[in-house]
Design a binder for these strands. Structure first.
Lengths: 233, 233
DNA sequence: TAGTGGTCTAGACCACGGC
DNA sequence: CCGTGGTCTAGACCACTAT
């Protein structure tokens, strides 16, 4: 047997993965049960289970009680993006970080945000605009709306020492959120911030988070021209 | 004890998660060992291990042998994007899908792609441009470079019935890849495809994949104006 | 070297869902 | 019903690393 001496669940997973990728098992096919595989690999069923769960998490197989495990017909491509603390990301690259709060104030929630930020009519939110710099060059333009009713201690913060980004990550745990990524043309404020021309294509990420008490924050991070968000698959 | 009778690893994970989120354990703090937690919860160490591994996978705690488990100081935001088969994505929304191959031909690899697509000098690649439509409207502009030396059966495919996207997903298993997301301004071809003006900000995703034999394909998918790639967190 | 997490085992019971 | 995967257990050994 080609897999003799495969000991750890990772080796078993890799062997199963090979059979899926090289179509030893066709897409849609039922693969042997855990007990049978455990016999083949000479290990406990638990270990096969661990390997198969890993493949199922990756979307390469589908598992159902009684029905068994089947090779996925169209395995999806998945990409996990990690959105880091900006300061740490910059410093990890060896750059020097600083940020500047450009605007801060309370205002009624802009009407066009009602969809992603469900608040009572006329509710006031804290609005901030922050520029994050890497080695003195603008790197990210951050615009944020914060539901004051859900972040009571925030009033004491002036964001001089730590950014709203860091403060919220550490102080306003969320139970759910949405994230979206898109392109937008530089408006006057963005063009000015990044010293580029109006309409320049910029990459942006928007995140809204909430907890049991309702929405917490909506933040849009717009990246400097040329930015790429990368991941390996 | 507030957590008496918590039986499954999910209940235990949720309780540990609560302690992290509500700062019962401060960021950076060392939390009790698996043996101690197993005693507290009245379960096997394995079960606590499963719960803690889940939190570690999510980046909320850091685990190291001998050093123990610590609450992450700055838990990263992670977003998992699923890049589906385009046809299925469109049809899942109730739309009708079709695509049109706009260009196809072999050519030397463009020099600027040498970095992400390492091939011998002067190697020829298959280059295709495909437009994907949803309900008759252009949805995605796909430009693809395929290493013919690594996809031998591809010559027989004319992509009339299935797209290069589907063909490669099912026939060219990869062992590794990179993915990046960015914004780009519409060039003449993109502006024409999406019936928009030159320079319009467009969202694009680029994926390069390889296997043991070398690079397989490099594909750039450029989305129609206004597109957002969404995920929940 | 000693303490911590990582993994494996053999067995058991349970939950789901085709039959 | 009953076969399948999902989970849990009690114990064991191993790998890593702080001290």
């Amino acid at each position: 047997m080609s897999t003799r001496d495969a000991k750890s669940w990772i080796l078993i997973r890799d062997e199963l993965l090979r059979r899926v990728r090289e179509r030893v098992w066709e897409p849609g096919a039922l693969i042997p049960g855990e007990v049978e595989l455990a016999e083949e690999f000479g290990c406990a069923r638990t270990t096969v289970n661990r390997a198969l769960r890993d493949l199922a998490d990756a979307g390469l197989v589908h598992r159902r009680r009684r029905a068994g495990t089947r090779v996925a017909v169209n395995p999806p491509h998945k990409a996990t993006l990690t959105i880091p603390i900006i300061r740490e990301e910059v410093e990890a690259r060896g750059g020097t970080y600083h940020h500047a709060l450009q605007q801060r104030g309370t205002r009624p929630l802009p009407a066009h945000l009602g969809g992603v930020f469900p608040l009572p009519d006329g509710a006031e939110v804290l609005h901030t605009v922050t520029l994050h710099y890497e080695d003195g060059r603008p790197y990210i333009h951050e615009e944020r709306y914060i539901n004051l009713a859900n972040a009571p201690d925030l009033a004491d913060q002036d964001f001089a020492r730590i950014s709203a980004n860091e403060w919220l990550v550490q102080n306003a745990p969320y139970t759910g959120g949405d994230m979206s990524f898109f392109a937008l043309p530089a408006d006057a404020a963005l063009a000015d911030a990044f010293d580029t021309s109006l309409g320049t294509a910029l990459f942006a990420a928007e995140r809204s988070t909430w907890n049991d008490q309702g929405p917490i924050t909506l933040v849009r991070m717009t990246y400097a021209p040329g930015f790429r968000m990368r991941t390996s698959i």
